[in-house]
Write a protein that binds this DNA or RNA. Structure first.
Length: 835
DNA sequence: TTAGTGTGGTAGC
DNA sequence: AATCGCTACCACACTAA
């Protein structure tokens, strides 16, 4: 090891000095020779690094040998041993233990990327940005140690940096980000090359993947002082953050032999160890993983025979080559081994395995056979393949080894075919496509059926025949299902602001897109799940709730999006303290440069175009709508004017809003103090959210839609506004009434309504409102109010009673005011709510 | 029929 | 002390129109 050598050298005992001195001379001579050789075969060399002396310390990616080649071929001096201080102009390292940091503190110590970038740009780029001990210079080491230990505060989702900090440590986040960026790069790299065609479908597929990548890198970059005798081939090693309920991201083959699997919790894995064997846990090496992957893709892309290098993930790629690119199996195997050798060499020891076949699914299965550390070629051709070999091949896979078969599908197959254990069994049991489709559904059934015959279904094959489109981004989203613990809506609003900011400024900006549709998904703790789940800060068992919203106008305005999210949150029945996870998706991405969106900035004008589109699908409405169009769209100026609210209109709105408030105030005064305060607080937030610009735009839309519907019913003499609305699969309002009545009566006695039931009830009420049937809502509200009164003396103190009271005040009554258009007419009913 | 919504499943380590 | 359970995309069931 070079470290050891250095120590000896520094001792500088006379005998040794001359030995190393000689060695140094010899190596310098070899370097020159090496360079000459390169030049004679016509390879590019340069004098870029002339005058620089570079030394590599410890493990790096690219590896020591590769850096050596890079330095020498670009005219630099490569220092094999750090013989005396000052002899090296640059030291390349990925990380330094504290002692080395001190030792090297006067050197330019940089990470390998510096060299890569220098060569790429063909100039010496400033080293400071690549310095790995820069941060130490700024503060004394003692202070740093104390602050870093004090830095380990428990995770807190109210911290403004929580999101970024969480993502920095999340393996799954990294995997997703890496994948997205590889796809993006693919598009840039291959956008001009012609697509492959089905007709010429004689391709060889190489599926290449690192063996336990995370674990290998973690091992290579481990703290050697902490693990002086660790043996990667013998000791079980896993990569994780924690000790007990922490996910295992990756485990080496010694661990796999004991039954340990990726995704398992550390505590579970430890239970599988035989007596006397210890499990070694190593931390993640995200940066070095990324570097390793860069080397991997660079090598693959440099191989001429590969038509495409399709990224699957950070450590996995599918290489497509024409069948006649290689002369025979022998040369193909040689190529595979050469690739494996190069990758191992240039990543300082990371191993890839390769599966080779003529379809995606077979290449993937072959890869499974190839692992660990091998190449496997599978020929599906019946004539050249021995039937025994066939049976053995398919017989060695479990059902969920088949791509597309996961936990859930496995369960379905097991249920239907309890005796089937291997893919060979399944091949024999399921001869027809129909039975598979009846269990698994149309597509998946077909996919499995074809896969068992070694063929790809159309969807899977898209990655070969249409990768550019497949890799084109169609949605953007973030999920946070760890560390979410909020106290109240104020905290959640702040968090939504942060999420919105991240999505807009990091994602939309990066891809230069606008969004016109948002989905919000919340995870709510199951009623019977413990408040603190087994995993620290985990989500535990949850019920999911989803809602989505069309914005009408494509936007990248963080404010509008945040406001909409806050509003959406409030439509879902998830109390702040029960929240365990949030997911936000932007579904309909729009290109701002697209000429048909040129008036996005004007915003509202697009809204009205959209309005016309969305309200014209049915023939009946179209016939009625045309007069409307004549009035409005014949004169573009007029249309535009309507967008600007007249001062009169603005005042009217103000008036209405005041009325609404007065209406609510009336109810508040009759409430017990505590409830009143709570309800008022939340309404304040809700109102703020609802009064946003977007909300006003949406209300305007809604009003126009209703107006058209009313016109319809007027002209057509039809009751089209009374389209049936279902609750609990019932459309008859009287029946729904009695159903709701029973439900209220039962749940008042206990703990109130179940969230899901309530959620659907609220949806039903919302639909009633949206279709101008507020009087039904009034009837229901009245009924509930009467029931509460009747039962007050007996159950007035029950939890359910209070719940229903709050539901009535906080949700149902404000709902009736929501649609101002109808409010003025319906209010005449003047039902008295005495609570 | 067609289009939209919400839900579920899968993949990578 | 613990711990960092993401994210894009397809497919399906269901509803509205």
């Amino acid at each position: 090891m070079s470290n050891k050598d250095n120590k000896v050298t520094e001792e500088n005992s006379t005998g040794r000095y001359s030995y190393f001195y000689n060695k140094k001379i010899k190596q310098a001579e070899q370097d020159i020779k090496f360079r000459k050789q390169y030049e004679t075969i016509g390879k590019q060399t340069s004098q870029l690094l002339k005058g620089l002396t570079i030394y590599v310390n410890g493990h790096t990616i690219p590896g020591r040998l590769q850096i050596h080649d890079m330095v020498v071929l670009n005219g630099g001096n490569f220092l094999h041993h750090l013989s005396s201080k000052g002899s090296a102009t640059h030291i390349i390292a990925s990380s330094l233990p504290p002692k080395k940091r001190l030792e090297f503190k006067n050197y330019k110590v940089i990470n390998p990327q510096w060299l890569v970038d220098c060569i790429k740009q063909q100039k010496i780029v400033p080293w400071q940005e690549y310095s790995i001990i820069k941060s130490d210079i700024e503060q004394p080491s003692i202070l740093k140690i104390s602050s870093s230990s004090a830095n380990k505060t428990p995770p807190n989702c109210n911290d403004p940096n929580f999101l970024i900090d969480y993502f920095k440590h999340s393996r799954l986040h990294h995997l997703s980000e890496w994948k997205a960026s590889l796809r993006q790069k693919f598009i840039e790299l291959y956008q001009d090359i012609p697509l492959l065609t089905h007709s010429n479908s004689s391709y060889t597929i190489l599926h290449i993947d690192f063996d336990c990548f995370f674990a290998t890198v973690a091992y290579l970059f481990r703290d050697k002082k902490k693990f002086p005798t660790l043996d990667f081939d013998k000791d079980p090693i896993v990569v994780c953050h924690g000790v007990k309920n922490s996910d295992i991201a990756s485990c080496n083959y010694a661990a796999r032999k004991l039954g340990i699997k990726n995704g398992m919790w550390v505590g579970t894995a430890e239970k599988m160890l035989p007596n006397g064997i210890k499990l070694t846990t190593l931390p993640y090496e995200f940066e070095n993983i990324d570097n390793g992957s860069k080397a991997f893709y660079t090598i693959l892309q440099s191989i001429e025979q590969f038509y495409y290098v399709l990224p699957v993930s950070i450590d996995e790629a599918i290489c497509v080559m024409s069948k006649n690119a290689m002369e025979n199996k022998q040369t193909l195997l040689q190529l595979c081994n050469a690739v494996r050798q190069r990758i191992k060499h240039e990543t300082s020891g990371c191993i890839v395995s390769i599966g080779v076949s003529d379809s995606l699914v077979l290449a993937r299965l072959a890869l499974k056979m190839a692992k660990p550390n091998g190449v496997f070629m599978f020929d599906n051709d019946n004539e050249s393949q021995d039937l025994n070999d066939m049976n053995q091949f398919w017989g060695s896979f479990k059902l969920d080894d088949l791509p597309g078969v996961g936990r859930s599908t496995l369960k379905k197959l097991r249920y239907k075919y309890p005796k089937v254990k291997t893919l060979q069994d399944l091949r024999q049991t399921c001869q027809d496509i129909i039975s598979l489709q009846s269990i698994l559904g149309n597509k998946l059934g077909e996919k499995v059926y074809l896969a068992l015959r070694g063929e790809d279904d159309e969807e899977s094959a898209r990655i070969i025949y249409d990768p550019i489109n497949m890799f084109q981004r169609k949605s953007i989203s973030i999920d946070i299902n760890w560390g979410i613990r909020f106290k109240d809506m104020v905290e959640i609003d702040k968090f939504l602001d942060i999420c919105s900011d991240y999505l807009v400024n990091k994602k939309l900006a990066e891809y230069n897109k606008l969004t016109s549709s948002i989905t919000l998904k919340l995870m709510k703790r199951c009623v019977d799940a413990p408040v603190d789940p087994p995993k620290y800060m985990g989500m535990g068992r949850c019920d999911p709730f989803t809602t989505s919203s069309r914005l009408g106008v494509p936007t990248n305005d963080g404010g509008i999006i945040a406001t909409e999210l806050k509003h959406m949150f409030r439509t879902l029945p998830v109390p702040p303290v029960e929240l365990r996870g949030i997911s936000i998706q932007f579904n309909k991405l729009v290109d701002p440069d697209d000429p048909k969106n040129s008036n996005v900035k004007k915003g509202l004008s697009l809204l009205f175009q959209k309005d016309q589109v969305t309200t014209t699908p049915s023939p009946s409405s179209r016939s009625i709508e045309s007069p409307l169009h004549n009035v409005e769209s014949n004169d573009p100026h007029r249309k535009y004017k309507r967008l600007k609210r007249s001062p009169v209109k603005e005042r009217e709105d103000q008036l209405e809003s005041n009325q609404r408030n007065a209406f609510q105030q009336q109810f508040f005064q009759e409430l017990p103090t505590q409830i009143r305060k709570d309800v008022q607080h939340d309404l304040k937030i809700t109102r703020k959210v609802n009064d946003s610009k977007l909300k006003r735009m949406k209300e305007e839309l809604q009003r126009r839609e209703n107006a058209i519907r009313n016109m319809n019913s007027h002209f057509m003499n039809s009751d089209s506004i009374f389209v049936p609305i279902k609750f609990q699969n019932e459309t008859n309002f009287e029946k729904i009434c009695s159903m709701v009545n029973d439900w209220v009566r039962e749940t008042i006695k206990e703990k109130g309504p179940h969230e899901r039931d309530l959620h659907f009830f609220k949806k039903y009420l919302n639909k009633l409102c949206d279709s101008d049937r507020v009087h039904f809502v009034l009837r229901l509200a009245d009924m509930i109010s009467v029931t509460l009164n009747l039962m007050a003396h007996k159950y007035g103190n029950a939890e359910g009673f209070t719940e229903w009271e709050i539901i009535l005040i906080k949700f149902i009554i404000p709902l009736m005011n929501r649609n101002r258009h109808t409010f003025r007419t319906e209010r005449k009913l003047d039902i008295e709510y005495d609570i």
